[in-house]
């Protein structure tokens, strides 16, 4: 019992550190990729290939002058970025990061919390995610920040619907809300993306909107709203907002990989004949590769597509994605019924 608790604590802290480090280096990779897409080199001065750039950026943010608008709501102003960061880090608990590890004959699952409603947990966290942005935007007492916050909330509410509807098909197919169970059913190459391409596409688009990434980065649209909800933020508070975006990218990549790309499964999984722990490590690396792939897609899209206009965004969400998602649910239901 006590070893289980220690193991869970270790795993949780490992995942926390992992998401922070990945988010840190995503900032570098984002700038590198942006550079390559634009025929530039990207940052390459701080350390070899710019590897120390995230540290330099972090240090800069820490030592920058902290500024708080005189008319800001002091408590909420600080609560906003903290909440955003907190919520961004919560989701990783429900994701199965790999198959079980066996140490001294005791089985340790590579998942912090195997709740039987894993998907709903992810959605609950997602729906709270908007609070950090809204609170921060409102507390700054700035019209641009408020507009950014309002945009963020309406955008996130709109896309949450289509996202949940696209996930319902997965739940219908697997008959379970547990992430672990869903991954287990995608064993080998039975990936959900092959059965639910439309659902995957809808989920991908919604994931872009939920993480406030381009082309749906209207809450921080700098051409219209200066900096959006973080206009009045500086120093590490701003850093938290920017950082949370990259953590969200990482986690949403993990969720997509888990739900659609078979999680840690890969074709030929049974033929390798590895010992359980090596196998767990290999599987974890496979999952990590899939997440990295999604991270690259995020950046690729960001540096390719121009930003949507606000009415286009709402139109896409309500008039295209939601009907498509409902259609997908109906089709899946009919197919499941016919196969029974």
């Amino acid at each position: 019992m006590i070893t289980q608790i220690i193991y869970k604590a270790l795993l949780a802290s490992f995942i926390l550190v992992l998401s922070l480090v990945v988010a840190m280096y995503s900032t570098l990779i984002e700038r590198k990729v942006a550079g390559w897409f634009q025929d530039r080199h990207g940052p390459n001065r701080a350390g070899p290939w710019g590897l120390l750039q995230p540290l330099a950026d972090g240090l800069k943010l820490f030592f920058k002058e902290e500024f708080m608008p005189a008319s800001a709501d002091k408590f909420l102003y600080i609560l906003g970025p903290s909440l955003t960061m907190f919520v961004a880090l919560l989701t990783s608990a429900a994701i199965p990061w790999g198959p079980d590890i066996v140490i001294n004959g005791v089985v340790y699952p590579m998942q912090v919390a195997d709740v039987n409603i894993g998907i709903l947990y992810v959605f609950a966290i997602l729906s709270i995610g908007v609070y950090g942005i809204m609170i921060g935007g409102w507390a700054s007492n700035n019209k641009y920040a408020l507009l950014g916050a309002v945009r963020a909330s309406s955008q996130m509410i709109s896309y949450e619907l289509a996202m949940s509807l696209s996930i319902i098909t997965i739940v219908m197919m697997s008959g379970s809300l547990s992430m672990r169970e869903i991954v287990a059913q995608q064993h080998g190459f039975h990936w959900n993306i092959l059965y639910q391409p439309l659902g995957f596409l809808i989920f991908l688009v919604c994931a872009f909107a939920e993480t406030n990434r381009a082309p749906f980065d209207l809450p921080e649209c700098e051409t219209e709203l200066v900096g959006g909800y973080h206009t009045e933020y500086s120093s590490m508070k701003l850093g938290f907002y920017l950082f949370a975006e990259y953590i969200n990218m990482f986690i949403s990549g993990a969720v997509m990989a888990t739900l659609f790309l078979g999680g840690y499964h890969f074709p030929g999984i049974d033929k390798l004949g590895l010992s359980p722990n090596v196998f767990a490590f290999v599987s974890f690396m496979v999952l990590f590769t899939k997440i990295t792939f999604f991270g690259f897609i995020y950046m690729w899209i960001r540096w390719t597509l121009p930003r949507f206009r606000y009415d286009q965004l709402m139109k896409l969400g309500w008039k295209s994605l939601i009907p498509l998602a409902i259609l997908n649910v109906v089709i899946t239901g009919v197919v499941i019924l016919l196969n029974q």
């Binding site: 550079g35 390559w36 897409f37 634009q38 025929d39 530039r40 080199h41 690729w300 899209i301 540096w303 390719t304 597509l305």
Partner: peptide
């Protein structure tokens, strides 16, 4: 159109960089 745009940007990944160090 999106895929076309993504193909174009992907092509730029491997172009010679114009930056003078």
């Amino acid at each position: 159109a999106i895929l076309g745009g993504m193909r174009i940007t992907f092509g730029h990944l491997f172009r010679r960089k114009t930056t003078v160090q």
